[in-house]
């Protein structure tokens, strides 16, 4: 599904990603963990071209998205992203947040987009909030809407950048539940997270980044019970 080959990213002189090689299979759920500043967000953002890789290539299905002729907008409609701080459109209602890009980008008829949006809102348990403005929602509700908004574009891949880090503790669970059920539908997911329990339970694989390098690539059982590298051991000692 996704193949990443020798991915380098520089910000000016600073090398943030130092040659990452990995691939993500269709339907796989990958947890990306690592210390702050290790390049997790940057890595994720390269996959939907919010950051332009400096070197290396990324393939989604059979298409090289890092090629010169890529239609960036097309790539992004196929790769959904959920941010730490939700970034819902505050001047649009919940329903409008979900229908905006299907209608404006994909040209979906409004009625069809609304029906689909309502389906998705039911799936995340927020159908009754369709007419509300985002500012009236709690953090957990906002994030569930943000997930539904990304899903409204029918992406084949979903990226999550610390989706629960900005939430009050009592709201973390409802968001993780939604993600878990999404994983159950066979969605291909890459999740940057500090929720080790969730990574362990839901992820098929764990990628451990440190200093811009992919230090470990293992199953959750392996990674959490017997990490191979010192860096991963030290990291886990700190967070667990």
């Amino acid at each position: 599904m996704i193949k990443i080959d020798n991915l380098h990213k520089y910000f000016g002189r600073l090398e943030v990603l130092k040659g990452i090689n990995t691939s993500i299979k269709e339907g796989e759920v990958v947890a990306i963990i690592g210390p702050s500043g290790s390049g997790k967000s940057t890595f994720l953002r390269c996959i939907n071209l919010l950051e332009q890789p400096t070197e290396g290539s990324i393939w989604i299905k059979d298409q090289e998205i890092t090629g010169k002729k890529t239609n960036i907008s097309k790539v992004r409609t196929n790769v959904g992203m959920v941010f730490q701080h939700f970034h819902l459109f505050p001047h649009k209602t919940v329903l409008e947040n979900l229908t905006y890009s299907p209608v404006k980008v994909k040209g979906m008829p409004k009625k069809e987009a609304e029906e689909k949006a309502m389906d998705l809102l039911r799936r995340v348990g927020l159908a009754e909030k369709a007419g509300e403005y985002p500012n009236r929602l709690s953090g957990g509700q906002k994030q569930r809407v943000a997930i539904a908004r990304a899903l409204a574009m029918d992406p084949e891949v979903m990226l999550f950048d610390e989706p629960t880090s900005a939430l009050d503790p009592e709201m973390v669970k409802e968001v993780l539940e939604v993600m878990k059920s999404l994983a159950g539908t066979g969605m291909t997911m890459a999740i940057v997270t500090h929720e080790m329990g969730f990574a362990r339970e839901v992820a098929d694989r764990v990628l451990f980044l440190d200093g811009g390098q992919l230090v470990e690539d293992a199953s959750p059982e392996e990674f959490f019970s017997m990490p191979k590298t010192v860096r991963a051991k030290e990291f886990l000692e700190k967070v667990l």
């Binding site: 907008s73 992004r76 701080h85 970034h87 001047h91």
Partner: peptide
């Protein structure tokens, strides 16, 4: 983040400006 969210949804620059950024 508004710009990023719009970009992540594949919204082209013009529409992003007109529908998302300028109204706010």
């Amino acid at each position: 983040g508004q710009k990023e969210a719009a970009m992540a949804l594949g919204v082209p620059y013009r529409k992003m400006m007109m529908d998302i950024i300028l109204p706010q």
